[in-house]
Write a protein that binds this DNA or RNA. Structure first.
Length: 602
RNA sequence: GGUUGCGUAGCUCAACUGAAUAGAGCGUCUGACUACGGAUCAGAAGGCUAGGGGUUUGAAUCCCUUCGCGACCA
């Protein structure tokens, strides 16, 4: 983390200490902690103390109490330039020199330190978690972007991060595409059909579903009930037989499974690469699904788990407001929960993490609540570091995505679509002049995917969101292209200034009167580190997204009404250029945390 | 039915975890506009924060309740 000048770091604390002193001296109350707030933009000042809580002790009017405390601070804290009192709010103005000094100390520096402390906590972030029977869709996109961004934010906040992916590569749904391919695929491969592997396998999954449904329908027309028809359809019997063979390690089935999965992985790899996400470690359910049974034994011996008459094992969570949860069926087979217990323990053994973050949709809120509670009851002390990063569904303007109605938005198609829109818009605005074809293509990708990523990340993860592609790629408003544009404009400004020789290397801040907007910007820069911390604590890229938009917008206004290069005073021009440059660095760093690239020209 | 999450301008989202007149963007209306790069700028309208009650000096935020939407669990 960037070191702030001690003087600056101390200002809030100094004020806080002196306030405590004042309260003791004036009213004889002992207060442990005082926090200052940022002054509302409508009022003059930088920091604000709310005095309402002290009225009981002072037995005076809010205004008088505020003035008394204020006067004490003015005398005892040198950096206090002036004060004003509005009702119960004491607004403190900090000396301009102070902001300038601060700015000088961060000028042009990178804010995110990539060197970790030796005792940095380890945080594991699991995300993506795809099934190998179909390609990724819009919902996965939100998952991947969230997981990746949260991992980057945690890194920036000083954690050692391990990104993991748990691939669901086994089970009945995987067998479906296998069987369909075997029966009707006629040896089709990704190469022979020029199709991405995951899309090809997905096609057979759909094929199976279609045929199976028609079987069920024909059974029903013979008077069989829905439930019976589903169970007795020949395809269902075949698929179950295939799953049995897979579990028994049947050579033929396993070979088919391996081949089709390898197609899918190749497809996923391309999608991940395009999306810009990656993993340090990939787990496969085919390896982990047997885990967890030993934990059940352990739990039984500890008496935390109990066995029913039918031999199934369960845990009673009714005292915690939850239900009884079965962990092992009567026939000894395990359930999802069993596997997740085993996986968590295995990961702790491998990495001894301080935190483990599961990026999974909010439809699984209950599952994770139960999982974490069981691990706590089993007395694993690391269970306190488990966290479910739960996110809401992505909806489209036309409504919800339903795979059955064919309204699923495919991830690859979506990304291509975004790039196409970006290309069309960019060309229309005449921004590609002088770029080679290759550079132009790269720019479209940067803008298109940036727009997509920003649009999905700017919303609070736990809330459901509406995805509107056209709106996301707007060059104005709260969008990535707007932020990227402001970054690019600064680069252009700096180039021009360098040509004119206005950009001195050494920044001198003597005799500068800073504008209110400049002070605002400096304060925002100052808040960058605490914003990263907040985002890390909340596991929320939205915090960063809103921050970077705010600073870009503020800068945009500043740029518009300040003649940066026209000013006579040389050191003022240099200051404004340095301020611009630092803002560009903040924008770039923030966008990196969101996994978004910024172009140098656009 | 049980559990749980959500409900903020016409629309998409904020509000630093309880503070000042609830903020942006898009859209709408009214005026401006020969800067270093605006796909511009300045103003305006738009809100009983789903409804009701409570706690508090102070509530979009915490508690209770009704309604609406969703998700899980049978």
């Amino acid at each position: 983390m960037q070191k702030l000048p001690t003087e600056f770091m101390n200002i809030e604390q100094k004020l806080s200490e002196k306030t405590i002193e004042a309260l003791q001296l004036l009213y004889g109350v002992a207060v442990e902690k005082i926090t200052f707030e940022k002054t509302s933009p409508d009022f003059e000042g930088d920091l604000t103390l709310v005095v309402f809580p002290f009225l009981k002790a002072s037995k005076k009017k809010p205004e008088d109490t505020a003035s008394e405390i204020g006067n004490y601070l003015k005398i005892n804290v040198a950096e206090v330039a002036s004060l004003n009192v509005v009702k119960g709010f004491l607004n403190i103005v900090i000396d301009n020199k102070f902001w300038l000094n601060y700015f000088q100390s961060v000028n042009g520096k990178t804010f995110i330190n990539s060197v970790l402390l030796p005792n940095a906590p380890t945080v594991m972030v699991e995300y993506s978690s795809p099934n190998t029977n179909k390609p990724l869709h819009l919902g996965h996109v939100r998952n991947n972007l969230l997981g990746y961004s949260v991992a980057e934010i945690l890194k920036a906040a000083g954690n050692k991060v391990v990104k993991t992916n748990l691939v669901n590569d086994r089970g009945i749904h995987i067998c479906k595409s296998m069987l369909a391919w075997q029966k009707w695929g006629a040896g089709e491969t990704p190469e022979s059909s020029a199709t991405k592997g995951d899309h090809l396998v997905g096609k057979y999954y759909v094929e199976f579903d279609k045929r199976y449904k028609s079987e069920v329908e024909s059974q029903k027309s013979k008077g069989v009930s829905q439930e019976e028809a589903e169970k007795q359809a020949p395809l269902m019997l075949e698929i179950q037989e295939m799953l049995r063979k897979w579990e028994a390690g049947d050579k033929e089935v396993r070979t088919l499974w391996k081949m089709m999965n390898s197609w899918v992985y190749k497809g996923f790899e391309a999608t991940y690469k395009m999306l810009g996400v990656d993993f340090d470690k990939t787990y496969y359910e085919s390896n982990t699904y047997v885990l967890g049974k030993n934990i059940i034994e352990e739990g039984l011996s500890k008496g935390v788990l109990k066995r029913r008459a039918d031999n199934s094992v369960f845990i009673d969570l009714t005292a915690d407001g939850l239900d009884e949860k079965t962990l092992l069926r009567g026939d000894g087979t395990s359930v999802y929960m069993t596997q997740d217990l085993g996986t968590a323990v295995q990961r702790e053994d491998e990495y001894s993490f301080n935190k483990l973050i599961y990026t999974v949709g909010n439809e699984q809120d209950y599952h994770f609540k139960v999982l974490f509670l069981i691990l706590k009851k089993l007395d694993y002390k690391w269970a306190a570091g488990l966290h479910h990063l739960s996110y809401g569904m992505v909806e489209l303007p036309e409504g919800k995505m339903k795979s059955r109605e064919g309204t699923v938005v495919d991830a690859d198609d979506l990304m291509q679509e975004m790039i196409n829109i970006a290309a069309a818009t960019t060309k229309e605005l005449g921004k590609v002049e002088g770029l080679t074809e290759e550079e132009a293509q790269h720019l479209y990708k940067t803008i298109g995917l940036g727009a997509l990523k920003y649009y999905m990340l700017k919303v609070d993860p736990k809330k459901k969101m509406l995805f509107n592609p056209a709106e996301s790629i707007d060059f104005n408003g709260n969008t990535a292209p707007f932020i990227q544009f402001n970054y690019v404009r600064i680069q252009s400004l700096l180039r021009k200034a360098t040509e004119r020789g206005q950009f001195n290397d050494v920044l001198k801040t003597d005799n500068i009167t800073i504008l209110p907007k400049e002070k605002e910007l400096i304060i925002k820069i100052y808040n960058f580190n605490s914003t990263i911390q907040q985002a890390a604590n909340e596991f929320s890229p939205a915090v960063i997204a809103n921050y970077v938009y705010d600073i870009a917008k503020e800068y945009s206004q500043y740029y518009h009404d300040t003649p940066i290069l026209k000013e006579e005073q040389k050191n003022l021009v240099a200051f404004r250029l340095h301020l611009s440059k630092t803002i560009a660095i903040v924008i770039n760093s923030s966008m990196k945390l969101l996994g978004i690239e910024v172009p140098e020209r656009m």
